Amino acid sequence: MTTNLSPAQAWQKLIDGNARFVSGESIHPNQDAARRSELVNEQHPFAIIFGCSDSRLAAEIIFDLGLGDAFVVRTAGHVLGDAVIGSLEYGVDVLNVPLIVVLGHDSCGAVTAAKNTVETGEMPRGGLRDLVERITPSVLAAQRAGFTDVNDMVIENVRQSTERLLDSSRAVSEAVDEGKVAVVGVTYRLADGKAECVSGFGAL
Protein backbone atom coordinates (compact mmCIF):
# COMPACT_ATOMS: atom_id res chain seq x y z
CA MET A 1 0.00 0.00 0.00
CA THR A 2 1.80 3.10 -1.23
CA THR A 3 0.69 6.56 -2.18
CA ASN A 4 2.92 7.53 -5.12
CA LEU A 5 0.86 10.62 -5.84
CA SER A 6 2.27 13.90 -7.08
CA PRO A 7 1.41 17.04 -5.13
CA ALA A 8 -1.04 18.01 -7.90
CA GLN A 9 -2.73 14.59 -7.83
CA ALA A 10 -3.05 14.70 -4.05
CA TRP A 11 -4.60 18.18 -4.24
CA GLN A 12 -7.06 16.99 -6.89
CA LYS A 13 -8.17 14.15 -4.61
CA LEU A 14 -8.97 16.67 -1.89
CA ILE A 15 -10.83 18.92 -4.36
CA ASP A 16 -12.89 15.94 -5.54
CA GLY A 17 -13.64 14.85 -1.98
CA ASN A 18 -14.76 18.31 -0.96
CA ALA A 19 -17.00 18.53 -4.03
CA ARG A 20 -18.70 15.31 -2.96
CA PHE A 21 -19.15 16.65 0.57
CA VAL A 22 -20.63 19.94 -0.66
CA SER A 23 -23.11 18.16 -2.91
CA GLY A 24 -24.16 15.69 -0.21
CA GLU A 25 -22.68 12.76 -2.12
CA SER A 26 -19.88 11.70 0.24
CA ILE A 27 -18.76 8.10 -0.28
CA HIS A 28 -17.00 7.74 3.11
CA PRO A 29 -14.03 5.79 1.70
CA ASN A 30 -11.59 3.62 3.63
CA GLN A 31 -13.68 3.32 6.78
CA ASP A 32 -14.35 -0.42 6.96
CA ALA A 33 -12.77 -3.24 8.94
CA ALA A 34 -10.59 -4.31 6.01
CA ARG A 35 -9.03 -0.84 5.79
CA ARG A 36 -8.48 -0.83 9.55
CA SER A 37 -6.61 -4.14 9.33
CA GLU A 38 -4.59 -2.94 6.37
CA LEU A 39 -3.25 -0.03 8.40
CA VAL A 40 -2.13 -1.90 11.52
CA ASN A 41 1.58 -1.91 10.61
CA GLU A 42 1.94 0.98 8.19
CA GLN A 43 0.44 4.21 6.93
CA HIS A 44 0.80 6.10 3.68
CA PRO A 45 -1.37 9.25 3.90
CA PHE A 46 -1.46 11.35 0.74
CA ALA A 47 -2.09 14.69 2.48
CA ILE A 48 -1.06 16.53 5.63
CA ILE A 49 -3.84 18.80 6.84
CA PHE A 50 -2.83 21.46 9.35
CA GLY A 51 -6.10 23.03 10.37
CA CYS A 52 -7.90 25.02 12.99
CA SER A 53 -9.19 23.06 16.00
CA ASP A 54 -12.74 24.34 15.48
CA SER A 55 -15.27 21.53 15.94
CA ARG A 56 -16.95 22.44 12.64
CA LEU A 57 -13.78 21.86 10.66
CA ALA A 58 -13.27 18.08 10.72
CA ALA A 59 -10.79 17.51 7.91
CA GLU A 60 -11.64 13.90 7.13
CA ILE A 61 -15.32 14.77 6.80
CA ILE A 62 -15.10 17.91 4.67
CA PHE A 63 -12.69 16.23 2.23
CA ASP A 64 -14.54 12.88 2.33
CA LEU A 65 -11.55 10.88 3.54
CA GLY A 66 -11.06 7.71 5.55
CA LEU A 67 -8.54 5.95 7.76
CA GLY A 68 -4.96 6.42 6.64
CA ASP A 69 -5.73 9.10 4.06
CA ALA A 70 -4.65 12.24 5.94
CA PHE A 71 -2.07 13.09 8.58
CA VAL A 72 -3.92 15.74 10.59
CA VAL A 73 -2.51 18.42 12.91
CA ARG A 74 -4.82 20.98 14.54
CA THR A 75 -4.40 24.06 16.71
CA ALA A 76 -6.73 26.99 17.34
CA GLY A 77 -6.24 29.43 14.48
CA HIS A 78 -3.77 26.96 12.88
CA VAL A 79 -1.00 28.63 14.89
CA LEU A 80 2.48 27.29 14.22
CA GLY A 81 4.81 26.20 17.01
CA ASP A 82 7.72 23.82 17.45
CA ALA A 83 5.53 20.75 18.02
CA VAL A 84 3.41 21.57 14.97
CA ILE A 85 6.43 22.12 12.74
CA GLY A 86 7.97 18.88 13.99
CA SER A 87 4.74 17.03 13.23
CA LEU A 88 4.58 18.47 9.70
CA GLU A 89 8.23 17.60 9.11
CA TYR A 90 7.53 14.05 10.25
CA GLY A 91 4.81 13.83 7.62
CA VAL A 92 7.18 15.07 4.93
CA ASP A 93 10.44 13.36 5.90
CA VAL A 94 9.21 10.06 7.34
CA LEU A 95 5.83 9.47 5.70
CA ASN A 96 6.78 11.10 2.36
CA VAL A 97 3.46 12.93 2.09
CA PRO A 98 3.34 15.09 -1.07
CA LEU A 99 0.90 17.78 0.07
CA ILE A 100 0.47 20.08 3.06
CA VAL A 101 -2.81 21.96 3.43
CA VAL A 102 -3.09 24.88 5.85
CA LEU A 103 -6.81 25.00 6.58
CA GLY A 104 -8.66 28.00 8.00
CA HIS A 105 -12.33 28.89 8.07
CA ASP A 106 -14.70 31.83 8.26
CA SER A 107 -15.94 33.09 11.64
CA CYS A 108 -12.75 31.79 13.28
CA GLY A 109 -12.83 32.42 17.03
CA ALA A 110 -9.05 32.68 17.37
CA VAL A 111 -8.80 35.31 14.63
CA THR A 112 -11.78 37.14 16.14
CA ALA A 113 -9.99 37.19 19.50
CA ALA A 114 -6.91 38.70 17.87
CA LYS A 115 -9.06 41.28 16.06
CA ASN A 116 -10.70 42.24 19.35
CA THR A 117 -7.33 42.65 21.02
CA VAL A 118 -6.07 44.90 18.25
CA GLU A 119 -9.22 47.03 18.46
CA THR A 120 -9.51 47.25 22.26
CA GLY A 121 -5.94 46.79 23.47
CA GLU A 122 -7.20 44.21 25.97
CA MET A 123 -4.99 41.12 25.94
CA PRO A 124 -6.52 37.78 26.99
CA ARG A 125 -4.86 35.75 29.73
CA GLY A 126 -3.06 32.43 29.76
CA GLY A 127 -2.36 30.41 26.66
CA LEU A 128 -4.91 32.33 24.63
CA ARG A 129 -2.58 35.31 24.87
CA ASP A 130 0.07 33.37 22.94
CA LEU A 131 -2.43 32.46 20.22
CA VAL A 132 -3.55 36.07 19.89
CA GLU A 133 0.03 37.35 19.70
CA ARG A 134 0.82 34.94 16.88
CA ILE A 135 -2.31 35.83 14.89
CA THR A 136 -2.10 39.62 15.41
CA PRO A 137 0.34 40.22 12.51
CA SER A 138 -2.26 38.79 10.12
CA VAL A 139 -4.96 41.07 11.56
CA LEU A 140 -2.71 44.11 11.20
CA ALA A 141 -1.71 43.18 7.63
CA ALA A 142 -5.36 42.82 6.64
CA GLN A 143 -6.20 46.18 8.20
CA ARG A 144 -3.31 47.87 6.38
CA ALA A 145 -4.73 46.49 3.14
CA GLY A 146 -8.08 48.09 3.96
CA PHE A 147 -9.92 45.00 5.20
CA THR A 148 -11.97 45.16 8.39
CA ASP A 149 -14.05 41.97 8.19
CA VAL A 150 -12.83 39.02 10.26
CA ASN A 151 -13.19 36.66 7.31
CA ASP A 152 -10.72 38.72 5.28
CA MET A 153 -8.37 38.46 8.26
CA VAL A 154 -8.85 34.69 8.22
CA ILE A 155 -7.66 34.59 4.61
CA GLU A 156 -4.63 36.69 5.49
CA ASN A 157 -3.88 34.42 8.45
CA VAL A 158 -3.96 31.36 6.19
CA ARG A 159 -1.62 33.04 3.72
CA GLN A 160 0.79 34.10 6.43
CA SER A 161 0.73 30.66 8.02
CA THR A 162 1.77 29.01 4.74
CA GLU A 163 4.61 31.52 4.31
CA ARG A 164 5.66 31.14 7.95
CA LEU A 165 5.83 27.38 7.59
CA LEU A 166 8.22 27.64 4.67
CA ASP A 167 10.31 30.23 6.51
CA SER A 168 10.43 28.11 9.68
CA SER A 169 11.09 24.66 8.23
CA ARG A 170 14.06 23.89 6.05
CA ALA A 171 12.77 20.35 5.53
CA VAL A 172 9.47 21.59 4.12
CA SER A 173 10.96 24.42 2.03
CA GLU A 174 13.57 22.09 0.51
CA ALA A 175 10.91 19.51 -0.34
CA VAL A 176 8.89 22.24 -2.06
CA ASP A 177 11.94 23.45 -3.98
CA GLU A 178 12.64 19.89 -5.11
CA GLY A 179 9.08 19.44 -6.36
CA LYS A 180 8.31 16.67 -3.87
CA VAL A 181 5.79 18.65 -1.81
CA ALA A 182 3.32 21.48 -2.34
CA VAL A 183 1.92 23.70 0.40
CA VAL A 184 -1.60 25.03 -0.11
CA GLY A 185 -3.50 27.61 1.94
CA VAL A 186 -7.23 26.86 2.04
CA THR A 187 -10.24 28.56 3.58
CA TYR A 188 -13.45 26.74 4.39
CA ARG A 189 -16.95 28.24 4.34
CA LEU A 190 -19.06 26.94 7.19
CA ALA A 191 -22.39 27.63 5.48
CA ASP A 192 -21.90 25.67 2.27
CA GLY A 193 -18.93 23.44 3.11
CA LYS A 194 -16.78 24.73 0.25
CA ALA A 195 -12.98 24.69 0.59
CA GLU A 196 -11.11 27.22 -1.57
CA CYS A 197 -7.42 27.70 -2.29
CA VAL A 198 -6.12 31.16 -1.31
CA SER A 199 -2.36 30.59 -1.60
CA GLY A 200 0.05 27.96 -2.75
CA PHE A 201 3.71 27.02 -3.07
CA GLY A 202 5.04 24.22 -5.24
CA ALA A 203 3.85 22.38 -8.32
CA LEU A 204 0.06 22.14 -8.41
Rank of each mutant, 00 (worst) to 15 (best):
A83D: 15
E174I: 10
I49E: 11
H78C: 09
V150A: 15
L140T: 03
G77L: 01
A171I: 12
G68M: 03
R36L: 14
P98E: 06
G91Q: 07
T120I: 04
S173F: 08
N116R: 13
A110W: 00
D149E: 12
C52W: 12
R35F: 04
F147H: 15
V102F: 13
C52L: 04
A113Q: 00
A47R: 06
E163A: 15
Q143T: 07
M153C: 11
L131T: 06
V79C: 11
A83E: 11
E119N: 14
D69M: 01
N30A: 10
G127M: 09
G109W: 04
F147A: 15
A70L: 04
N30R: 12
E156L: 04
T75A: 10
R129K: 15
E133R: 13
A58V: 11
D152T: 10
S168C: 07
N30H: 15
P137D: 09
G104E: 02
L103T: 03
F147I: 13
S107E: 08
I49F: 14
E163C: 05
T148Y: 08
E156Y: 02
V150F: 02
P98R: 00
V73H: 15
L140F: 00
D167F: 09
R164I: 00
T112V: 05
L103C: 03
G77Q: 05
A114H: 00
L99W: 12
L165R: 13
T162F: 06
A141D: 01
E133W: 02
D106C: 08
L39T: 10
A175R: 02
V118E: 04
Q160P: 03
S169D: 12
V139C: 00
G81W: 05
S107V: 06
A171N: 13
A145S: 13
E38R: 14
S161F: 04
A58P: 10
Q31K: 13
E119I: 06
D82H: 10
T120N: 01
A34R: 09
T120A: 01
D54N: 07
V92E: 04
E89Y: 02
G121C: 10
F63I: 00
E163M: 08
V118P: 01
G126V: 03
V150D: 02
V101E: 07
A58M: 13
F50V: 05
H105C: 05
S169K: 05
G146S: 10
T162V: 11
F71Y: 15
R134M: 11
A58S: 14
R35N: 10
P137M: 05
D167L: 14
I155T: 15
K115V: 11
E163F: 06
G126N: 11
A33W: 10
L166S: 06
V97F: 07
G109C: 08
S37Q: 14
I85N: 05
S161E: 04
A34H: 09
R36W: 11
E38D: 12
S169Q: 11
V84Y: 14
L166M: 08
A110H: 01
S169W: 09
P45M: 01
M153G: 12
G51T: 04
G127E: 11
G86Q: 09
